[in-house]
């Protein structure tokens, strides 16, 4: 292992894995007093199936993987749609019930309008959900953020573990063939609690 020179300022790449030291002693009974710290562990629970609620776990999970964390994602209730291959390319976004919905484009019509939330009734108009979904997908694509299926592939390649909630799976009468290929299994809530031991849990 090459020594880091004195006074060297270096980014935090996490703990270095020490190479086995051969100091001459052949004492195989050596037991380290402090166990080496494993990677930081994060678990996400995805419970919502709206398009805008799919992204938080995908983005944070991806960031966590890039920082060397172990990542587990449990998909439950409506969130199960995110790993359902028949559904996850057509998740939708609705204005209804979202009072934070405002459009930056409206500022061009009249300054200040971009900060006004959209009237709730608008969300109920036919075609409005499809329109809002299209718009959000476009905004995401403009920022080079992958769509949901591609994002799952990216996470899987980076080593994320996906789990489907057994209760929801049974309730929705799903079949395993519909789940994303990287899904580790259909597990119970208790299984997830076991798997996420020591993890920081984020519920979405």
């Amino acid at each position: 292992m090459t020594e880091i020179p004195a006074g060297f300022t270096m980014p935090d790449f996490g703990p270095r894995v020490a190479a086995p030291t051969t100091t001459g002693t052949t004492d195989s009974q050596f037991v380290p007093t402090v166990p080496p710290p494993g990677p930081r562990k994060m678990a996400f629970i995805c419970s919502k199936g709206n398009l805008d609620m799919a992204y938080p776990a995908l983005i944070m999970g991806n960031a966590a993987l890039g920082e060397g964390c172990e990542v587990h994602i449990f998909f439950t209730f409506w969130g199960l749609d995110i790993i359902n291959k028949k559904l996850n390319h057509k998740l939708q976004f609705t204005l209804t019930g979202n009072t934070a919905m405002h459009m930056p484009q409206l500022g061009r019509l009249r300054p200040g309008l971009e900060y006004r939330s959209m009237p709730q009734q608008l969300g109920g108009l036919p075609g409005m959900t499809a329109f809002a979904t299209r718009m959000m997908k476009q905004q995401m694509a403009d920022l080079e953020i992958p769509d949901v299926p591609a994002f799952l592939d990216l996470l899987a390649a980076a080593g994320a573990h996906f789990y489907a909630c057994k209760l929801t799976f049974d309730m929705m009468k799903m079949i395993e063939a519909d789940l994303h290929d990287a899904t580790v299994g259909v597990i119970s809530a208790a299984d997830f609690i076991e798997i996420s031991e020591g993890a920081q849990i984020v519920f979405i």
Binding site: F13, A158, G159
Partner: peptide, 27 residues
Amino acid sequence: TLRRLQTVGGFDVKELYRLYPGKPVKK
């Protein structure tokens, strides 16, 4: 970003994590 390495550079993400374990893109 790692995503750009995949889409524009054509690199395999899994392979990049293997080559540079832990924090690949920062490394």
